[in-house]
C-alpha cells in the first residue's frame, strides 16, 4: 500500500489534505506530521512514496524540508508536492527551484491534488 506523508501545522488543513488523499484508488496510507520537526522524525521510520508539505510552518519551514529531502540520497527520490497560498509566488518558485515536483495552491482542488499525487507516485514507481 503506498504511503503518503502530509506535513502541515494547521490541524484543519491537515485533515482536509488527508481526507482528499484518502479517496485515492488504490487505497493509500496517510501519515500526518504537524511540523517540520515531526516530519524529520517520521522520515527515517517508514518509506514514503509521496510527501505533501505546507510552506509556512514554524521551526523548519516547507522550503527547508524540501531542501533537506532533495539533498539526502536516502529521500531524494521521493516525489514532493508543496502546498502554498495564492500570492506567495516567490516562495513557490523557490520550492520548485529546490526540487519540489509540483505544487497546489490553497484553497486546493481535491481532484487536482489527487491527480498530481497519483501521477507522481506512478512516475516514481515506473522509474524504479
Amino acid at each position: 500500500m503506498p504511503s503518503i506523508l502530509v506535513v502541515e501545522d494547521s490541524a484543519t488543513m491537515r485533515s482536509l489534505l488527508a481526507s482528499a488523499l484518502e479517496e485515492l484508488e488504490p487505497a493509500v496510507k496517510i501519515t500526518e506530521a504537524s511540523s517540520g520537526f515531526e516530519a524529520l522524525r517520521l522520515l527515517p521510520r517508514s518509506s514514503f512514496d509521496l510527501i505533501v508539505t505546507d510552506i509556512n510552518m514554524p521551526d523548519v519551514n516547507g522550503l527547508e524540508l524540501v531542501s533537506f529531502v532533495k539533498n539526502d540520497p536516502a529521500y531524494r527520490s521521493i516525489p514532493l508536492i508543496i502546498v502554498s497560498t495564492e500570492g506567495s509566488e516567490r516562495d513557490r518558485e523557490k520550492g520548485l527551484g529546490l526540487g519540489a515536483d509540483a505544487y497546489v495552491v490553497k484553497p486546493f482542488e481535491p481532484d487536482r491534488l489527487r491527480e498530481l499525487a497519483s501521477d507522481l507516485m506512478a512516475r516514481s514507481r515506473g522509474q524504479e
Binding site: 517540520g36 520537526f37 524529520l40 522524525r41 521551526d59 523548519v60 519551514n61 527547508e64 533537506f68 539533498n71
Partner: peptide, 25 residues
C-alpha cells in the same frame, strides 16, 4: 533534536534572533 533546538533558540533570542533552521543531512 526538537527540544535541543528549542533551547538553542531561546538562548539565541536573549541577544538576538534565530532566523532560519535548515536540516542539512
Amino acid at each position: 533534536f526538537d527540544a535541543a533546538l528549542s533551547e538553542l533558540g531561546e538562548a539565541i533570542k536573549v541577544d538576538g534572533e534565530l532566523i532560519s533552521t535548515l536540516p542539512s543531512a
